[in-house]
């Protein structure tokens, strides 16, 4: 129970948001944008980031717990807890005229109650693709009637994508990368196919070291030997939870992998790396450059 809690708090601070499926646009968002929306609630870290990028930050009256960026501004906004454990009444008390949520949370009873209470909810679609932030920005822009802001975001993002293209071309080989999701020594998961981690690794020009299964699975020493990763990728917080690089390498099997032997270990911020936020292209560039700059990449920053 305690361990659950610790893990859980770990996740909250990670601000990880994994999205699993893509849905068709719903009728709500195709509705015309007559009303002007002045009080927004965002229930996803990447959406919050989008709102700030679209210069709508001052309209945000509440965010969920995964919203951690931009840190300075977002700490001023009331936190509503986790999207799966919402206090509907408290959310209503913020008197939002639009609530933005990820489509993957559509099954939440609390969000259904919110709609029943007459609050408009904008369901944002998207899976782990480079274009997800843009697609979501368009949905938001359409709803809020933002044209210039949307255009400028698109420009920045396209520029980032172009840089990513260059970075990938500059890469000479395709390193195999293993993403380890750590919640302390007792709980280590590795990302298989069809995960945000896998998508990001491939965007950055690497190859996911695990090809034999989908989703996350517990890490095993033998599985590690089989995967033979050249690089280990972790969240900063995950790496910390293990006691840094030294701690990580004490995990049975890890030191024996090529990555472990050469010290090819990369730590990055969770929301930045796997949130598929408007910084997704930049994050991919970042990862790509760090993959090339190995072996000195494992120094934490």
């Amino acid at each position: 129970m305690n361990r659950f809690l610790i893990h859980f708090l770990g996740i909250l601070t990670l601000g990880l948001s994994l999205n699993a499926c893509q849905n068709a646009p719903s009728a709500t968002e195709q509705a015309t944008q007559e009303a002007s929306y002045e009080r927004l609630v965002s229930l996803s870290g990447s959406v919050t980031e989008l709102l700030y990028e679209l210069e709508q930050g001052d309209k945000i009256v509440g965010v969920d717990v995964t919203s951690t960026y931009p840190a300075e501004q977002v700490t001023q906004v009331p936190k509503l807890g986790h999207v799966r454990q919402l206090n509907v009444e408290a959310l209503l008390s913020l008197q939002p005229d639009l609530v933005l949520a990820e489509r993957t949370d559509e099954a939440s009873a609390a969000l259904q109650q919110l709609e029943a209470a007459g609050v408009e909810v904008l369901w944002l679609d998207g899976s782990f693709t480079l274009d997800k932030p843009l697609a979501q920005a368009e949905q938001i822009g359409k709803k809020l009637g933002l044209n210039e802001e949307l255009e400028s975001l698109r420009k920045t993002y396209e520029a980032d994508k172009a840089r990513l293209q260059q970075a990938r071309q500059a890469m000479e080989e395709t390193p195999t990368v293993l993403f380890i999701y750590a919640r302390g020594k007792g709980s280590l998961m590795v990302a298989g196919k069809n995960t945000a981690a896998s998508a990001m690794i491939e965007l950055a020009g690497g190859q996911n070291a695990v090809q034999s299964f989908e989703g996350f699975r517990a890490l095993s020493a033998e599985g590690l030997m089989e995967a033979q990763p050249e690089v280990l990728l972790l969240f900063d917080s995950g790496l910390q939870s293990l006691g840094g690089v030294e701690g990580l390498l004490q995990i049975p099997g890890l030191a024996q992998t090529p990555a472990g032997q050469q010290g090819h270990i990369i730590g990055m911020d969770g929301l930045y790396l796997l949130g598929f936020t408007p910084r997704a292209a930049r994050a991919a560039v970042d990862l790509s450059e760090r993959l090339q700059a190995l072996p000195d990449a494992y120094t934490l920053n």
Binding site: F4, F8, I11, H82, A109, A110, S187, R217, A218
Partner: peptide, 23 residues
């Protein structure tokens, strides 16, 4: 142990108890 993040979250919230779903 074998749950993914979303599932883990739901499990934890369930174990902590809530009357929030009342209807």
């Amino acid at each position: 142990y074998f749950s993914d993040e979303d599932e883990l979250r739901d499990i934890i919230f369930w174990t902590l108890g809530s009357l929030g779903g009342a209807n």
